[in-house]
Design a protein around this nucleic acid. Structure first.
Lengths: 239, 239
DNA sequence: CGAAGCATTGAAGTGCGTCAACAATCGTGG
DNA sequence: CCACGATTGTTGACGCACTTCAATGCTTCG
């Protein structure tokens, strides 16, 4: 199951069999968690990091009035809290949006791996940086794009990210979020998120039913979103 | 001048004289740049990273219609594009908001430093992660806070960050941004940014004139902002 | 000292929020 | 397998925070 993560790493560098083994061995345990649980609570001290092997997670920050913002969605292959390895506590919760399977990697193991295999340290650092590029793009969306464009952008991004790890169909992917959760990604109310989806449907751009999102007009959607996958850094990088 | 950067690092770990020397030697050149220049353009290939020694920089992303979002402000001591070291090209511009003095560190030097001094690699990784925490907080602001709260939050954050590097007075700091730039940080129009400042002034929370921001009621401002400096990770971390 | 940028103000418009109700679907236990 | 409560999705009416447009004074700096 860790394969999905290894494949993600291989998009950046070749993995030696030794490096691959080190990562496989680092996963001391896999754990199943149900939807709508808090996997990591903001501020708690961390001794392990979690690789998401199946399902959807989100980083979540909330305000006193109970409103929350979902900062970044994670899909299979993603390290959910690699930043926890250096920070030791997080400024946000990590919550499950669907049933999940996660791999547990103790920080000592990460420590060993990164000391012993500088190339792996480098890829992981690099992935942390690509993660924050996603957050930057979100800030651009929240600050400057309209509701319609923002939602279109999110769908474009998710398609590309899922496709990159082999979790997307020709023009669709499983999308487990409720409209409430979707609205929390986009900084909208549920009501307006609902109306925005309907507008995308009305324009013949997407279908969304029974947790399945189908993109009917990819370039139309990308146009509205002003989507450019550049920020996802999906191409192999020079080492 | 690199001292301000070294001091920032010392907030996280002790620096050995050898480590300090390595960083000092890595700065092969310092460069003066005037306000409103593009220091790094999105997509261009990078061979060096820049430490900001004096002045203000911002990461900036823009949309086709010319609207732009300032994603993160940088002040003295910050590494402006440490993520460029692993990513080799950026998904955003880096622009000057005031006259600046920057230190140039070639990537080869960074490579040597991080290989030779794993603790430094670790602090730099850690700072990259703290950087993205700031971007996350921005996403929370843009998604969930009102204009007033957002602006209050930005002022609280900047005070704390500047204070941490000794660039703030008892209750004030130099703030070189125009209202247009401020509005671009907050995802607002200039007009509304202006009205929002006036509301903060009217409530006796801040003064802003001749590029100087004075906080008259710190706890009042923090209250409106729901500001909690936790996400800035200013305390020394366990290594 | 004049031009260009910057701050401020007013009036009017709109995208999204709020409130409230109802319909559809889901999950669970009997 | 159906019943039923709870969650999720949808719709309408109305309100407001922020935008848009446009004009005017204020700085700043060559």
């Amino acid at each position: 199951m860790i394969t999905v993560h290894l494949n993600k790493l291989r998009r950046r560098i070749e993995l030696s069999t030794e490096e691959e083994r080190a990562i496989r061995d680092a996963v001391v345990e896999t754990r199943k968690i149900r939807a709508d649980e808090v996997l990591i609570r903001s501020g708690e001290e961390l001794k392990s990091s979690f690789v998401l092997l199946e399902g959807w997670l989100a980083r979540s920050k909330d305000l006193a009035d109970g409103e929350r913002q979902l900062i970044e969605l994670h899909v299979a292959g993603d390290f959910a809290d690699l930043h926890g390895f250096t920070l030791k506590r997080l400024d946000h919760d990590v919550v499950t949006l669907s049933d999940c399977l996660i791999g547990v990697i103790p920080h000592e193991r990460l420590q060993e791996i990164t000391e012993r295999y500088p190339r792996l340290a480098w890829v992981y650092w690099s992935y942390s940086n690509a993660d924050s590029a996603i957050t930057r793009e979100l800030a651009l969306s929240l600050g400057q794009r309209s509701a319609l464009s923002r939602m279109a952008h999110l769908f474009c991004e998710l398609y590309v990210r899922l496709d990159a790890v082999g979790r997307a169909g020709a023009d669709s992917f499983g999308f487990p979020l409720t409209q409430r959760e979707l609205s929390e990604c986009l900084g909208l109310t549920v009501v307006h998120a609902n109306r925005t989806i309907q507008e995308l449907r009305r324009r013949g751009l997407v279908e969304l039913e029974s947790k399945q999102l189908r993109i009917l007009d990819r370039s139309g959607l990308e146009g509205i979103a002003q989507f450019d996958p550049y920020y996802l850094y999906l191409n192999r990088l020079p080492v």
